[in-house]
């Protein structure tokens, strides 16, 4: 190596490599500057409003101590019960979305004719938006909807089943918008698992149940955790369908309704901010628990080019 031809490359101390090389080894170089626009964007749109809301939540509208807004929320059971109501909707529906997706995606993981068509059809509910879904649900599951009429004319039931304007209406709405999302995610996680692993397991004497339980499921678990978290977060902030197809004054008065009413109907921004903070903490707690569960599993490469 000639130093003469490269005047910039000083001979380093004999004790170690150049500082620049040491930094580069940790991924620190001039290209990091490219992150700046993104960081500015995140700070303006996320960090700043978050910190603003956080400070606001410690400044109750009618004076009082910094934690008064929080205390008000937890002391009033009409408000604090929204946490439980929301969790009761979000956790079962997210679980349902994940658990129902797994067997279907498992069956459909290979290549088959019409796979692209199926995935396209499944994306449609996501694009519809909650309002259209709610309208559809009203028509389909309402007291005079097709579903109840069909059951009644078949003589299965005498009175329409109460399927909307209650807990189940919101549940169905969350499933309709969340299931395709969960299904597509899980399908892509599954196709990332090298198909030869299952073939290997079968030559070792494992039937499909053993193959699923001992090979596919453990490799899929991290993907399931991620999918659960995403659908949970979507369900936890459910708002339009809780009003449109739920029972928004009682059983489906979810936490986002509480926040909405505080902010828009009572103009109590401090109280609304406190509720928003509580929402965030609960979401983070649930995600944390799920990640804890996930950490028990192998998270490395699943060895595959996929299907």
């Amino acid at each position: 190596m000639s130093t003469a031809s490269r005047p910039m490359a000083r001979v380093g101390k004999p004790t170690g490599p150049l500082l620049r090389h040491r930094l580069a080894d940790r991924g620190i170089n001039a290209r990091l500057l490219l992150l700046v626009p993104g960081l500015v964007f995140i700070v303006m749109l996320f960090v700043y409003p978050f910190l603003y809301g956080l400070t606001l939540s410690f400044q109750p509208m009618d004076g009082g101590g910094p934690f008064d807004s929080y205390r008000r929320f937890f002391e009033d059971s009409f408000q604090s019960s929204t946490i439980w109501k929301t969790l009761k909707l979000a956790i079962p529906s997210a679980l349902f979305n994940v658990l129902a997706s797994v067997p279907i995606a498992y069956r459909l993981r290979g290549k088959f004719r019409g796979k692209r068509f199926l995935t396209t059809v499944l994306v449609i509910p996501i694009t519809l938006g909650t309002v259209l879904t709610a309208e559809g649900l009203l028509n389909f599951l309402g007291p005079a909807g097709w579903f109840n009429r069909a059951l009644m004319s078949a003589g299965v039931i005498n009175e329409p089943l109460p399927l909307i304007n209650n807990y189940w209406g919101v549940f169905f709405s969350i499933v309709i918008s969340g299931f395709p999302f969960a299904f597509l995610l899980i399908l892509s996680y599954l196709s990332g698992i090298d198909p030869s692993l299952e073939r290997a397991a079968s030559t070792l004497g494992a039937d499909w149940k053993e193959r699923f339980r001992r090979i596919t499921l453990p490799l899929l678990a991290p993907g399931l955790a991620t999918t659960f978290c995403l659908t949970f977060v979507l369900a936890f902030s459910v708002f339009p369908s809780a009003i449109l197809v739920g029972d928004p004054t009682n059983t489906t008065r979810v936490i986002s309704i509480a926040a909405y009413q505080a902010a828009i109907e009572q103009y109590d921004w401090s109280f609304a901010s406190a509720i928003a903070m509580i929402m965030g903490v609960i979401e983070i707690a649930v995600i944390g628990l799920v990640q804890l569960w996930r950490s028990q599993f192998y998270v490395g490469s699943t060895g595959g080019k996929g299907a």
Binding site: D194, S196, L197, R199, A200, A201, S202, T203, L204, G205, A206, D207, R214, I215, P218, L219, F297, Y298, G300, S301, T302, G303
Partner: peptide
């Protein structure tokens, strides 16, 4: 017969080792 009923051993070109199991557990599997 399905593969699991034939009782043949197979070594795959890409090895197809179970990535989440240790060497020992890979061998234990069968």
């Amino acid at each position: 017969l399905p593969p699991e009923k034939r009782g043949f051993g197979m070594v795959f070109q890409n090895y197809a080792l179970f990535p989440h199991l240790t060497v020992r557990k890979n061998i234990d599997f069968g």
